[in-house]
């Protein structure tokens, strides 16, 4: 009711808007909400891997959809984080093929190595061990994990060390 202090979409960076605009172009003008997934991904990426309410409200305002509809999308898809998390996101597949090939041991090894449980981030803010991913479609070379969008397959503890130790 009182004096508007600017728009909610002000929370988005110029670059994020450009990216969102690019996606918006691909959809009919009365279907702007189609760009919401891409928009959230872009905004999350810029924000160090997680979304805030301000950013989600910004996306809602920019695209022109109800805020709650953006919350619905952001809370539905596991690729969105709604709380601050570590820089590097580790997802260990624990679905059937990986499980049969020992993913539980891999997971346990990572938990021990990093000193955190599934769903937690390391205190130094470096790693985030993401909770239960569904089959990531690399069953052929199970067990596998995804670290920051990259697939690593046929895992062994030694391989895990090698992958994680390389990260900054």
């Amino acid at each position: 009711m009182s004096e508007a202090t600017g728009r909610k979409s002000d929370s988005l960076s110029a670059h994020a808007r450009e990216e969102i605009d690019r996606w918006l172009e691909r959809y009919p003008s009365d279907q702007r909400q189609s760009a919401v997934l891409a928009a959230l991904q872009e905004v999350q990426h810029e924000n160090g891997g997680f979304l805030t309410r301000e950013l989600m409200d910004g996306v809602a305002d920019y695209i022109g959809m109800p805020e709650i509809a953006v919350y619905e999308v952001a809370s539905f898809y596991s690729m969105f984080e709604l709380k601050p998390v570590g820089r590097h996101s580790i997802s260990v597949c624990t679905n059937i093929s990986c499980m049969l090939c020992g993913s539980d041991d891999i997971l346990e090894y990572i938990e021990k190595k990093l000193g955190i449980k599934l769903g937690e981030s390391t205190a130094d803010g470096k790693f985030f061990l993401k909770k239960e991913e569904e089959c990531l479609a690399a069953c052929r070379s199970a067990p596998m994990m995804q670290v920051d969008h990259v697939y690593y397959e046929d895992l062994t503890p030694a391989k895990v060390d090698e992958i994680l130790d390389k990260l900054e």
């Binding site: 109800p66 709650i68 509809a69 919350y71």
Partner: peptide, 10 residues
């Protein structure tokens, strides 16, 4: 005409 409630989570 106001979307206030929604289904969040999965």
């Amino acid at each position: 005409g106001v979307r206030e409630l929604g289904a969040t989570g999965r």
